[in-house]
């Protein structure tokens, strides 16, 4: 079932995504120049997450891929989150 009805991402969309990514980069720089401790790290990582999501959805056009592929990608991030969580728990409760 090789159907060749692939989605073509318009040039316009790609340009808009780039502009958002660039703006978010400068927002990150501004935010991290204000010293808010742990909050700064959280904010920087959240923005990086949003940027990552945009790259995956539009540049890597996951938005228009099959449900299977999107679930697989999501599962990889869930797996990574679990690895991080388990490692942090191990680190926090180690004597």
């Amino acid at each position: 079932m090789s159907e060749n009805t692939h989605h073509i991402t318009p040039y316009r969309t790609l340009g808009i995504i780039l502009l958002i990514l660039l703006s978010l980069t400068f927002v990150t720089i501004e935010i991290t120049s204000i010293h808010l401790g742990a909050l700064t790290v959280t904010a920087a990582l959240l923005i990086a997450g949003v940027k990552g999501f945009l790259v995956l959805s539009y540049f890597m056009h996951l938005k228009h891929e099959s449900l299977l592929l999107r679930i697989l990608v999501a599962l990889v991030f869930v797996l990574f989150a679990l690895i991080v969580l388990i490692t942090f728990i191990d680190y926090a409760y180690r004597t």
Binding site: T25, T32, T40, A44, A48, V55
Partner: peptide, 15 residues
């Protein structure tokens, strides 16, 4: 690009 998006704030910005 995706990897750099996370590398950049972690190494350069968060201090």
């Amino acid at each position: 690009d995706l990897i750099w998006i996370f590398l950049f704030p972690l190494l350069y910005l968060i201090s």
